[in-house]
Design a protein around this nucleic acid. Structure first.
Lengths: 358, 358
DNA sequence: CTCAAAAAGTAAAACGATTTATCGCTGTCG
DNA sequence: CGACAGCGATAAATCGTTTTACTTTTTGAG
C-alpha cells in the first residue's frame, strides 16, 4: 500500500487558516463567507483573497453542527427507473438549484420500510425540507413519520390532500374522465381497464375517475378491470388469459391502460395476438412517452405536466421553509393534456382544449 | 405563524441523554453504538434499552465531524431521465445498500461545471467513494478533480481506462462490431450511422468499433455518419434533410443508431416517410428498451448489461475503499447482448451467443 | 492471597464551523 | 467633558460525536 497515508487528504484549509492568513479572526471570516455586512470592506477583501489563495470551502459538516442554516432539500422517490419520476427528479433538481438549494435524491424502491429509513435519514441530515412521493398515498406511514419528526415537506403524486402538508398532483381524475368522454363518445361500450399497481393512490384515482364518468355517460357500459401488483411475467400471463377468456364478441372494443408500464404490456399482448389497433381495439394510455409516437399505430396518451408539478412542489416547499407560507395547506391539482394519436381511432370532434400531438 | 417554534424539533436525544439514562459514560454508549466489543454485556444491554426508550439515533453530522468513518458513497450521473442511467442508479443503490453503505445521487445534467461542483460537494460531505459517470470521458475535468482531491472513485460508462481509477464500461466496441457483422453479413453496403451525442466517449467508441469492423469486412462499404449535439428539433430536421438528400438509389439500406434517443429519432422520421422496415431499410439500435419489442416492426438492439455494470462498479469501489484493492487499476469491459428482432430483417444464421429476444 | 496484566470505563480534548457576549474605538449629543 | 450609541472585531462557548489518555476493575497465574 504505497499511497495509504493515514493523514488527511491534501490538507484542507480551515476557517482558522484563512483567518490567520488574512490577519483577522475566524468569526470575521465566517461573516464574510455568509455575506453578513458588518465587515469593513478592506478586511472583507483580504479575507476573500485568503480564501482564494487557500482554496477554502466551508465544511458543511462542521457548519451544519452548530448552525441552523440548511440549504438542502431531500427527495424521496419510489422509483428512479420510470421515465416519469426521472423527469420529475430532474425538474425538482433544477427548481431547487434556481432557488439556491441543493437536492439529494434517494429511491424508496416502492418499499415503505425503505421510505421510513430515508425519511429518518433526511431528518438526520437536517434537510430544510423534503419532497415525498409516497409509496402508497398521503395516508401512508411516510406522512405520519414526517409529522412526528416535525419536518417540512411537500407531498407529490399519489396523494390527494393532507391536513398539514401541501400537495401537488396531476389531475388524474379529470384526465381519466376525459378518456371516458373520448371512448364512450366514440361508441365503445365494452372497455378494459388495465393497471399495474393497485396500491398507489394515483392508480385508484385514475380508475375511479374513469368508471364514474363512464357510468354517468351510459350506465349500460361494461367495464372490466385488471389490476394487480404481480411481477411482470404474471401480469403478462394475466393479460393473455383475459383475452383468451374474452375472445370473439366478448372482446372489449377499447382498452384504457392506467400507466406507461401497463400500456406496454397491453400493446405487447395485442401485437402478439395480431389484434388490429384501433380497428379491432382502441387503446388509450395514461402517461405519455416519447416512443408512443413511433409505434404503429402511434398511441393516444394522457401526458402529465411533470415540469409544472416539479416547479410547483419546490415552490410550495420553499414557501413553507422560508416562512412565508399560508397557515393552511394547499393542494394543487395540475391539469393533464391528452395527446391524440392513432390508437384511439379516427378523429372525432374533440373539445378544442385537446391538442393534437405526435 | 402559529407553529413557528424557534426551539429545535421534538427534542432529539443526544448521546449524553442515553449515557445518563443507562448510567454509563458517553464514550461507552459510543462504543456500543459502533459495535466495539470491549463493553460488559450487562452495560451494553442497558445502553441498548436506553437507546430504544429514547429513540436515539447517531447524529451523522456530529459523528462525521470527528470520526473518519464514512459509510456513504456518492454517485454523479449525467442524466437521470434516461432509462439506462435510471437503471444504473437503481443497481448502484442496491449494491451499495447490500454492502452496508448508503448512496447519494446527483445529476450533472451533462454539464462539466455542474459535475465539478458535485464532485467538490461529495468531497465536502466526506463520502467514502464516488461513482462517476463523466460528462465526456475519463480524460475530462472530473477525473482530474477527483485525483487532485485524492478521492476514491470508480469511473463508469463513457470511459476506457485510467491510470488511477478502476473503470467499468459496456464493451461498446465489440457490440458495434457485432452489429457490423450482422449488417454487412446481410448484404448491406450503404449504412447510415446516427448518433445524438458527439462528446461522449461511449458514442465515439461505438462509431469507431462499427466503422473499423465494417471496413475490415468490406472496404467498399459506404458509411454515412450523422452525429451532432444539437437540440432535438435541430436533429430531427437534420435527419429529414439527410433522407431528402439521399432519396432513391442514394438511400442507405440500413441504419445503425448509436443511442436509444437516436433510435427514436430515426424511427420517427422513417415512419413519417413511410419507409418500410426492414424491407426498405434495416434498423439496429444501440441500447435496448422495453418499448422496442412492441413497435412494428420490433427493433433489434444491443442491450447493455446494466445490472452487471452497477454491481461491478460498487464492488470495485468498495474494494479500494476498504483497502483490499490491487495496486494497479483494473478496467472492466462488460459484454453486451444483441437482441434480434424484426427490424434487422429476416433471420440470418447468427452466432449462437446471440439470443433471440422479443 | 498477591500482583501484574488485561479489560472496561471515563473525563476531557478534539473536529471546524457559528453564535454569543464583550470590548475597543469613533463620533455625537447633552 | 462625560456618557452613550453604533460599528467592527474577536475570544470563547457551543453543537454532538469520536478518540485519546488515563483510571479503575476484573481476571488469571503463581
Amino acid at each position: 500500500m504505497p499511497q495509504d497515508d493515514p493523514w488527511k487528504n491534501p490538507k484542507r484549509a480551515t476557517i482558522h487558516d484563512v483567518a490567520r492568513k488574512a490577519g483577522v479572526s475566524a468569526a470575521t471570516v465566517s461573516k464574510v463567507m455568509r455575506g453578513i455586512a458588518t465587515v469593513k470592506a478592506a478586511n472583507a477583501e483580504r479575507v476573500r483573497e485568503a480564501v482564494a489563495a487557500l482554496d477554502y470551502r466551508i465544511d458543511p459538516i462542521a457548519s451544519g453542527l452548530r448552525g441552523e442554516n440548511r440549504r438542502i432539500i431531500g427527495a424521496v422517490i419510489p422509483d428512479l427507473e420510470s421515465p416519469f419520476f426521472g423527469a420529475l427528479v430532474t425538474g425538482l433538481e433544477r427548481a431547487a438549484e434556481e432557488a439556491g438549494y441543493h437536492m439529494i435524491v434517494a429511491s424508496s424502491r416502492e418499499s415503505e420500510a425503505r421510505e421510513a429509513d430515508l425519511i429518518a435519514r433526511m431528518n438526520d441530515w437536517r434537510v430544510a425540507g423534503t419532497v415525498l412521493v409516497p409509496v402508497r398515498s398521503e395516508r401512508g406511514s411516510g406522512t405520519r413519520q414526517l409529522k412526528a419528526l416535525d419536518m417540512q415537506a411537500v407531498l407529490v403524486d399519489r396523494v390527494s390532500a393532507d391536513d398539514r402538508y401541501d400537495t401537488v398532483t396531476a389531475d388524474n381524475s379529470a384526465a381519466s374522465a376525459a378518456v371516458a368522454d373520448l371512448l364512450i363518445g366514440a361508441g365503445h361500450r365494452h372497455i378494459l381497464l388495465h393497471g399495474a399497481t393497485r396500491t398507489s393512490k394515483a392508480m385508484r384515482t385514475r380508475l375511479e375517475g374513469f368508471v364514474a364518468r363512464a357510468n354517468a355517460l351510459d350506465p349500460s357500459v361494461t367495464i372490466d378491470t385488471q389490476v394487480s401488483d404481480d411481477t411482470r411475467d404474471v401480469q403478462r400471463r394475466a393479460i393473455k388469459d383475459y383475452f383468451e377468456a374474452h375472445a370473439g364478441s366478448a372482446r372489449p372494443s377499447a382498452v384504457f391502460s392506467l400507466s406507461q408500464h401497463s400500456t406496454l404490456l397491453v400493446l405487447s399482448e395485442l401485437r402478439r395476438r395480431a389484434v388490429a389497433i384501433p380497428d379491432d381495439i382502441a387503446l388509450v394510455g395514461f402517461d405519455d412517452a416519447d416512443w408512443m409516437q413511433t409505434t404503429w399505430p402511434s398511441i393516444t396518451a394522457v401526458a402529465q405536466p411533470v415540469a409544472v408539478m416539479a416547479e410547483a412542489a419546490v415552490a410550495a416547499l420553499l414557501a413553507r421553509v422560508e416562512g412565508e407560507a399560508t397557515a393552511f395547506p394547499v393542494s394543487r391539482l395540475e391539469p393533464c393534456r391528452m395527446i391524440l394519436r392513432e390508437s384511439a381511432g379516427p378523429d372525432y370532434e374533440m373539445p378544442r382544449r385537446f391538442r393534437r400531438g405526435g
